Amino acid sequence: MPGITREEVAHLGRLSRLELKDEELDHFAGQLDEIIGAVARVAEVATEDVTPTSHPLPLTNVMRPDVVRPSLTPQQALSGAPAQEQQRFKVPQILGED
């Protein structure tokens, strides 16, 4: 596999609007070459018999049944409210809408 050239790194730098020095071009060319080699090795892995998955473990939702339980009445819930209207908390208007 041919390595990444300084010219290709300089081109990527221009596309990214990065000003790269000569020593950075050499340094990044080596690093990018190693990265591309590592990605190529991953692509060589035999995966024909592996089924695609989105998660390594099976996921199940743990839900409790919806059970009606005793709770506060509207009057009890609103008993400490500074203002209420139509069995609701009344708050100051902030958006200027009706």
Rank of each mutant, 00 (worst) to 15 (best):
M63S: 05
S71M: 12
L72P: 00
E19T: 04
A83W: 13
A46I: 02
V68L: 07
L25N: 04
P2Y: 03
P92D: 13
H55P: 00
N61Q: 00
P56D: 04
K21H: 05
T51D: 13
P65K: 12
R6Q: 14
L20D: 03
R17T: 12
Q86I: 00
V45E: 01
R88D: 00
V68C: 04
V67R: 12
D26L: 11
T5S: 15
A10S: 09
V9Q: 07
T5E: 09
V50D: 14
E44H: 07
E48F: 00
H55K: 04
E85T: 08
V67L: 14
E8H: 08
S71N: 12
A77I: 04
T53V: 13
Q75V: 08
A10T: 04
T60D: 10
P58Y: 14
P70Q: 11
G37D: 14
E34Q: 13
E48S: 09
G80P: 00
Q93T: 15
L15R: 15
I94S: 12
L32C: 14
R64M: 09
A40I: 02
Q75E: 15
T60N: 13
V91N: 11
I36P: 01
D98G: 13
P2N: 10
P56Q: 01
R88A: 05
T51Y: 06
L12K: 11
D26R: 09
L72G: 00
S71C: 14
G80D: 01
Q31F: 15
H11C: 09
D49F: 00
E7D: 07
F89P: 02
N61A: 01
L72R: 06
R17C: 11
L12A: 15
S54R: 11
V91Q: 10
H27G: 08
D22G: 01
A40E: 09
P82G: 04
V68G: 05
E34S: 12
V68W: 02
T73R: 04
L95N: 02
